[in-house]
């Protein structure tokens, strides 16, 4: 377990965390550390699905964690999850926008520099088939996941976000609405459209 020696003044001065109540502040800090440890891997996968790049996904997760800790750490712990996902989605959107700008700039660059931003190609050695029954099963599941991820990337951003939060993250409608900064009715609409689009794309036998 991590321990905390210093806290930002905003933590101590925040509502409900009095200056003299150092124990409560430290508990709150540890609670935040545990929360981030709990969500970091799932957040990484969400960022990786959207960005298709390990380093960019790690950067996005770290940026989202930093913003949550710096701005919203003093908020009640129950609010952290939707806040974190809203920040993460905004961060992912920022990375995608920066990439789009770079791509536009690179269109003027010489041809050999135009693909510098493309995601790295997969290692052929890792794609080699494992002949064992367990390997075949694993390969099929990997393929199914890749098809799902590709289909998710093809969805409009709001539908993708609704599906990731509701299905993958298990957030309820109210939490998803808070994370997406929209009404609960909009969440239901986005999610329903996402499911229909994914099923149409992947097929019933997927």
């Amino acid at each position: 377990m991590a321990a905390f020696d210093t806290l930002a003044p905003t933590w101590v001065a925040s509502e409900g965390l009095a200056t003299g109540d150092e124990g409560a502040v430290l508990d709150h800090a540890r609670q935040l550390d545990r929360f981030l440890a709990d969500v970091e891997r799932r957040a990484f996968r969400i960022a990786q699905i959207a960005l298709r790049d390990v380093d960019d996904a790690l950067d996005a997760v770290q940026e989202a964690m930093t913003k949550l800790a710096a701005r919203y750490a003093a908020r009640p712990a129950a609010e952290w999850r939707p806040l974190f996902h809203r920040i993460l989605e905004n961060t992912i959107h920022d990375v995608q926008r920066r990439r789009a700008i770079r791509r536009r700039v690179m269109a003027w660059a010489p041809p050999w520099r135009q693909h510098a931003d493309d995601p790295p190609e997969e290692d052929p050695a890792e794609l080699a088939a494992d002949p064992s029954p367990h390997g075949v099963e694993r390969a099929m599941r990997t393929q199914a996941l890749e098809r799902l991820e590709a289909s998710l990337r093809a969805l409009p951003a709001r539908q993708r976000q609704a599906f990731l939060l509701r299905n993958f993250e298990g957030l309820d409608v109210a939490e998803t609405a808070a994370a997406m900064a929209c009404s609960e009715g909009s969440v239901k609409t986005h999610y329903s459209r996402a499911v229909h689009a994914l099923r149409a794309r992947l097929g019933e036998v997927w």
Partner: peptide, 27 residues
């Protein structure tokens, strides 16, 4: 490796936000 990098990222995020975390026993 990815897990380790995520742990580093979390510590860096807490550090940057003004919360210095130290691995080990609590004070």
């Amino acid at each position: 490796r990815t897990r380790a990098r995520l742990t580093e990222a979390r510590h860096a995020a807490l550090e940057a936000a003004g919360v210095r975390a130290h691995a080990g026993a609590r004070r």
